[in-house]
Design a protein around this nucleic acid. Sequence first.
DNA 1: TTAAACCCCGTAGTTTACTACAAGGTCAAG
DNA 2: CTTGACCTTGTAGTAAACTACGGGGTTTAA
Lengths: 133, 133
Amino acid sequence: MSSLTIGQVAKLAEIGTETIRFYERENLIPAPPRRPSGYRSYEPEVVDRIQFIRRAKDLGFSLREIAELLSLRVDSEAACGEVMERATSKIEDIQGKIKTLSRMKRVLTKLVASCGANEVTDCCPILDSLEGR
Amino acid sequence: MSSLTIGQVAKLAEIGTETIRFYERENLIPAPPRRPSGYRSYEPEVVDRIQFIRRAKDLGFSLREIAELLSLRVDSEAACGEVMERATSKIEDIQGKIKTLSRMKRVLTKLVASCGANEVTDCCPILDSLEGR
DNA sequence: TTAAACCCCGTAGTTTACTACAAGGTCAAG
DNA sequence: CTTGACCTTGTAGTAAACTACGGGGTTTAA
């Protein structure tokens, strides 16, 4: 038996069962088939999908944006162009985030370095001056 | 006169005046001096700070975490060690985000590439399979 | 000197993303 | 064959981060 109950999925994905149902209502995960009793019956892959949602959320994507990311696929030739367009814009978005994070990291690294260098009074660059663009 | 009213700051930072007051209440920006009338009088640097907050928020940091980031500085020798510790943990956090974003970008790039390659039926890798750890 | 545009404070409402019941049905171990 | 852990739906409550009033005082440009 490769199918899981909602509770088993919740445990594997380290998330509450109500959050899974909430994601189902919000169309972030597909409604699974049901057992005769009405219990949801999940394939193990749903765990990956939930973990993807969690990671994306942690990166500042809203659930709406995550739904868009998850819908980026092509079934028919016709949709290809539109998907490419959306994917390309997401890539730019992501590239921007990476750039900002890299700058933040560089400033923090400098902060740590100057702290270590034992510059006694007022020894660290202030983070305030980080992002004046 | 280099000082700004809240409305001028709001316009420059592309944000509402109520949000600025909200950030003040939440200690994300310092309470500015007042004019005799009670009007807030800002130095232009506050605009940078607000933009930093906006960027950090977009990267998935909560306002609490942003407040922490903004407080990373050292005035006395004593605080140095603790600041270094906090900064180091933030660097790791940021590094993790960069890594996940890079993976997302790689998968999306592959998606776009395979779309362009004109693989007609079911031509794109599904994003579902993105983050199985 | 007055009217539009701005500021003050306080409180209340909204959106997003959960999180917690309540009332009841199901399953599996002893 | 029952009991405790688990599932169902639906509704309501919460936390974070704004956002929008209302009732008033201030500035500034005509």
